[in-house]
Design a protein around this nucleic acid. Structure first.
Lengths: 115, 115
DNA sequence: ATCATTCATCGTAATATTGCAATAAATAGA
DNA sequence: TCTATTTATTGCAATATTACGATGAATGAT
């Protein structure tokens, strides 16, 4: 059906999955890395840098904006995109917690050849 | 086109995105949480627990297996799925590094109303 | 051997994602 | 005003994802 049944899951699970999904494309990772490196950035730079068409980059930027990870402010004819530090920290913690709290105990209580 | 242009990006960017993509579905997050909590788990438990059909769960489990995050061993008629601790640690570091190295400096060098 | 249980796979429908050409909107400069 | 530049939006084609019913494979029990 192509439609995720979000109602079956908790808000936290859905939020985490939404963020992970946005991070689940190499172009968006490359955009974030470029933004962090430059600390000043406009969309057109990304087009020449990444090799994707301008509408495609714009679309990826919109998805990063939707989860609040980046912010754009108008600078003349171009737009300055930056990482939003507070949201960045929030997601950083979210992922750290996720990996921390789920760390497997691995006490091998399920069978001789298991785990 | 629906086809990611992976050739434009580095192996690291693609690997990170692949893992994030697998984590980008609430059902798979719920599965991982359940696996961690139980430390012993079979697929059928997940079906009743999550409310998705058995083939759907099986499909999600396969995706988690594909990135090495979980492992299944046969236990009679059922299968014992567990988190793979080494891979788990690897991805934990991967995400920690990602959020660490990209932490924004935010020196506001792009304009008065920017960032 | 037969049957029940458990999980995987196949096939399929509905929806989402990716990417781009064409176009629109907005601003700066001549 | 007209033009060039930059980014957003629209529309579309190709592919991917999500979900499930039907079926298959494997094991344990009767």
């Amino acid at each position: 059906m192509g439609l995720t049944k979000t109602n079956l899951f908790t808000d936290k699970q859905n939020e985490f999955a939404d963020v992970a999904k946005v991070l689940g494309h190499p172009a968006r990772i490359a955009i974030l890395q470029h933004l962090a490196k430059m600390n000043t950035c406009i969309c057109n730079h990304l087009v020449t840098e990444l090799g994707l068409a301008q509408p495609t980059i714009s679309q990826h930027l919109r998805e990063l904006k939707q989860i609040g990870l980046i912010k754009g402010s108008i600078e003349g004819t171009s737009i300055c995109y930056c990482i939003e530090p507070i949201v960045w920290e929030h997601y950083k913690k979210l992922f750290a917690e996720f990996f921390e709290t789920l760390t497997p105990i691995n006490n091998n209580n399920c069978g001789p050849d298991c785990c």
